[in-house]
Amino acid sequence: METRSVRLPVPGHDATLEVVRHGSWGRPVLLFPSEAGGAHDAEGNGMLDAVRWLVDEGRVSLFCVDSLDAWSWSNRDLPTEERAQRAGTYGAWLSEQVLPYVVGETGGDQEVVTVGVSLGAYHAVHLTLQRADVAPVAIGLSGNYDPTTWNGWGDLGDATYFANPMGYVAHMEGDHLDWVRSRVSLLLVVGQGPFEESPTRALSSTREFAEVLSHKGIRHELDVWGHDSAHDWPWWHRQLAHHLPRFV
């Protein structure tokens, strides 16, 4: 299995962030780490091994990205609105740097699947809702899709609204909603075990977001695992290995 990496500049920021690619063939899968994680976490935490057979068979080319959470959503010294503004910088990096890179590397023959765990699930789903023209399928594992619940404070404004799937999806209508319905397919997976509710609210948030998607008629699946399924990598391995093959 071939592995290589590249660092791509962040628009409006002096940083570069890493993208690590595993495999040379197959459907591109863009994988987000857990909160404040990095591009090597999938390999270091066993996620790559869980789906390695798909990479080895040429069914998947896995693109693992750095996060910018420590500077944005995870910085509790900042009010929520400023965190959301900073998160927009990360979104610009994904849209303007990462997606074109992935498409260029893979030829654009197959649409991108986004995958994320914990806070990464939010990133995967949010990116698909924003860029369903390129990445119409998202798999969110143990996500919380309402940033206003993330230890926030301060007045909320446009940046928070447009970064909050629970907010903006609930208000979608007209031609844009029709387009999202025609393009987007979301798979929301969550367990009922340790740390899936406290302190993450992943379980309740996932269920609430699925209700919003149902109300709006947006294609999605909700898969709730058992009371032994924890908010942790070993369970995310199993969940991704269970679901990813049918998308590739």
Rank of each mutant, 00 (worst) to 15 (best):
G37H: 06
G108A: 07
T148M: 02
V113I: 15
E96M: 10
D14K: 14
V115C: 01
V10H: 02
V98K: 04
A42M: 12
G140Q: 03
H40M: 11
D41G: 08
A121W: 02
D66Y: 10
F32L: 10
W150L: 08
V117Q: 10
D77N: 09
R86E: 01
F63V: 08
N144M: 05
W73A: 05
A84P: 02
Q97L: 07
R21M: 09
R76T: 14
V113R: 06
A138G: 08
P79T: 03
S74P: 01
D49Q: 12
P9Q: 10
L31G: 00
D41T: 06
L8A: 04
A124R: 02
V51L: 13
G26H: 10
V112F: 05
R76P: 00
H40F: 11
A87Q: 15
G38C: 11
A39N: 09
P33E: 06
D14Q: 10
R27K: 12
G12V: 06
V29I: 12
V103E: 15
G91H: 10
R52P: 00
F63E: 01
Q110Y: 01
A87N: 15
V20H: 04
L8Q: 08
D69A: 12
P147T: 06
E81L: 05
D66P: 11
H126W: 09
R76M: 11
E43T: 13
V125K: 01
I139G: 09
A42P: 06
L68R: 14
G140W: 02
G44L: 14
S61Q: 15
P100Y: 09
W93E: 05
D66A: 10
S61H: 01
S34I: 08
G58R: 06
G46H: 12
H13I: 00
S67F: 00
A15R: 14
C64Q: 14
L127F: 09
L127S: 09
G91Q: 12
D109P: 00
N151M: 07
T80S: 07
R83I: 02
G23C: 04
V60Y: 03
P33A: 05
S61G: 14
T148R: 13
Y90D: 01
V98P: 08
A36Q: 14
D56V: 07
G37E: 02
H123Q: 13
T89K: 13
V29T: 03
A70E: 12
L141H: 10
A138D: 03
W25G: 11
G108V: 08
Y145W: 01
Y90M: 04
S118P: 05
S95L: 12
P28G: 05
V112T: 10
V19I: 14
V112W: 06
W73S: 09
G104V: 11
T106Q: 01
C64E: 13
W71D: 11
Q110S: 12
A84V: 04
W150D: 03
D133P: 00
L48S: 03
G23Q: 08
W93V: 06
A15H: 12
A36T: 15
A132I: 00
H13D: 14
N144P: 02
R83E: 02
T106H: 12
N45I: 13
D14P: 04
W53P: 00
G140E: 03
M47A: 11
W73T: 09
G38N: 13
